[in-house]
Design a protein around this nucleic acid. Structure first.
Lengths: 292, 292
DNA sequence: ACATTTCCCTGACTTAAGTCAGAGAATACG
DNA sequence: CGTATTCTCTGACTTAAGTCAGGGAAATGT
């Protein structure tokens, strides 16, 4: 742990504190204290229930209550009892509230755009920001089951194919590979998982089943800025759990010699190499694992 | 300006806000409001004069005054009239104040170390942080004249030699090159400039003189995370200004074909290519510029 | 030498943020 | 069915932060 590293991190902190402060200041321009603005934005982002607002914003119950009242008086928010449990309350934006929320979103987007505009090399900066955000938000990476045709899934798959094209000596053309049907990677036959870090897709894995007790793992991918966090392992564990849940007892997968990290992961996590089980042109390694 | 880029920046903002907040919270652990802690730390970092404290922290004069009083009552700070101008006052830490300041520094360092410890690939993360901090703090990069043997200068020169070693087809060995005497790059014969971003050296340039009206530009370097910001140009302008100040009328420099950005910069800023003027083994391009 | 300006200070405010105790309604539990 | 628990709300605080108007001492300009 060198002194130099600590100095660099502290310099980063200073630089970024100014940026965060500037965003807060721009939020004050709407003539509302920051606390109320934060509540309004949290509701706009889909956090309706009062309890979840409290947890998310870390506010005292009394304080949040008052902030909600002030937003109600402004006509931006209405609160209604929760349909299932009338002790709880759910806040929702009115039409005026939605407009105000949109104004805050526009402020945030403007600041982001300004930052990008004064940045030297747009893409390097974005990549660096992704890496930092992922490292800082490591414990907040959520793995979710989704439709393999969802926006998040397509984001990952596009990046995955592009990476295969770069890494395989032969290049890669999806059309030549056996692209699974979406229905094979959805319940009840299979599943598709994406890893989301604060909403940004950073990894995926597919479980492709045919209805029997045999299934295949496909499309395991982790985005470069999220590598080294053990995310691939987590994705595989979740995929195996989903397989068990579907009554699957044997898993298979194919891979390529160029994908060294993946091969290493499979060998370390109980997969055994078997003979070729398909005629797909790209893979040259084949694995199997029996689920207990 | 893609939507995706804005989403990524906003995700970065969220991730980093949590980090900044955590640092603030840890500062509260010393039983002192954040405002007072900020003042104490600013004094500890060498900002003694009340006026400069006010500017740096962006505080109202009355508020700062009160914060200073509270630190005085705690016995952490003493304020004395400014020796040159008795209207102004200068704050300084007492022995107890120095200890308290050291405790805050330790908290900051701990947080930085923790962040680094939970990071996956230490060096990638640090590089990404440098890039972000430099891009955000772009307008705060200061160019200072320094001893070519100072810590900051050596930091730059070491990185410069390493980079030459990587980029030149022949490799690079300082011993074979004509390494200037330190005295040739200091007043009154020459000068050495470093660019500091929040204290971190991010670039340098040397002006090597022999006492006459001819001098050479040497060791122009900008660290990778600060490229694309026009820093090399600024360094060259400052070096030329220093040369004029020293009464120098003709500047020369040598460079290598592999250093394309540098060659481009020279050609665009009024340098003309001339014949080889030394027998150094590394350069293959030679330039001259007359100062008006 | 005198008026003006600069600098920091004090006192009297306002606003935001946060804490805590307890009330009232609804649900869960035995 | 009655009691305990959960959930949100209100009222009565405290603390931090910030604003504004002046005042006194020192320096500056004429």
């Amino acid at each position: 742990m060198s002194i130099d590293a600590i100095r660099r991190i502290r310099r980063f902190n200073r630089a970024v504190t100014a940026e965060v402060g500037a965003l807060d200041t721009s939020f004050l321009g709407r003539g509302r204290p920051l606390g109320a603005a934060r509540v309004l934005n949290a509701i706009g982002h889909g956090r309706g229930e009062v309890g979840s607002l409290r947890d998310y914003l870390g506010l005292d119950s009394g304080l949040l209550s008052r902030l909600l009242r002030s937003l109600e008086e402004e006509g931006l928010v209405v609160t209604l009892p929760h349909p299932q449990d009338a002790r709880r309350r759910v806040a929702a934006l009115t039409e005026a509230g939605r407009q105000e929320f949109a104004a805050y979103e526009a402020l945030s987007n403007d600041r982001a755009a300004q930052l990008l505009a004064r940045a030297p090399k747009g893409d390097d900066l974005l990549r660096a920001m992704d890496l930092v955000a992922t490292a800082l938000g490591r414990e907040r990476i959520a793995i979710e089951e989704t439709d393999p045709r969802s926006e998040a899934a397509l984001h990952c798959l596009t990046a995955y194919y592009a990476e295969l094209g770069r890494r395989l000596a032969t290049g890669f053309d999806v059309a030549l590979s056996r692209d699974p049907e979406a229905a094979d990677m959805m319940r009840p036959r299979g599943a598709f998982l994406v890893a989301l870090s604060d909403g940004l897709p950073v990894g995926c894995v597919g479980l492709k089943g045919k209805g029997g007790d045999l299934a295949e793992i496909k499309r395991l991918w982790v985005c470069p800025s999220a590598r080294g966090l053990g995310l691939a392992r987590r994705l595989m564990e979740e995929a195996e759990a989903a397989a068990r849940d579907l009554g699957i007892t044997t898993l298979r997968l194919d891979s390529n010699n160029a994908l060294t990290e993946a091969l290493q992961l499979y060998r370390r996590t109980g997969w055994v190499e078997i003979d070729r089980f398909n005629d797909d042109p790209y893979p040259d390694h084949f694995f199997e694992k029996h689920l207990p």
